[in-house]
Amino acid sequence: MSLIISEDIRKNYSAGEITVEALKGLNFTVEPAAFVSFIGPSGSGKTTLLNLIGCLDKPTSGRLTVAGAEVSRLDRRQSALFRGMNLGFVFQDFNLIPVLTVYENVEYPLLMVRNVPSAERRKRVMALLDSVGMADHKGKRPDQISGGQKQRVAIARALVSDPKLVLADEPTANLDHETAYMVINSMKRLRDELGTTFIFSTHDPKIVGEAEIIFTLEDGRIVDTRKAKGGKGDA
């Protein structure tokens, strides 16, 4: 069964009397353990779509099913619970909590969202920090590490609660090309190791090629779908 099923989803924003159609009837599916990228110019609807998939927003119409749940039907609390149990997020600006160490940032979802026991938390956090190569920096605060390291910590945080899906909105936008490439490859490697589905948006053509399925958005519509060999998805 597909992890994401989008059926004619639309999203409108209203500002006074003006209504802007951000998404204009998207239909696509994403299979489990896929490595998917949404690309397109600014204003094409990438972030809006990721927000809908991430239960941070609701579609104006259409049906969006993520991990078996129709997300538009979830209320605020249910959405929070759903995100905590099923989703991981990687943000463009990393969004690490500045007062917490690298270790504590990664531990946060297990502690505050999942209530995982201490020993299990330690095991999972250290395993992920090892995976992203940040174990040696576990005691540092976010302001003591580089941008690439911050994003690796953010990836570890997104994966620590073993989500079905990780959403990354422009995860490499604030990184140089080499670091961006490294981050994307880290994500891909973790997908291979953990079987977690990754969806990321980008407008950087150099890293797009790393995705197995590439949906191109333009003016709120999917105008192209490309699959690398073995890609899992359909439009």
Binding site: G88, F89, F91, M112, V113, S161
Partner: peptide, 16 residues
């Protein structure tokens, strides 16, 4: 505010 948005996005319940 952004930090609150982050912790809310990763599933922290409002009461926490």
């Amino acid at each position: 505010i952004r930090e609150i948005g982050t912790i809310a996005a990763i599933g922290t319940m409002p009461e926490k």
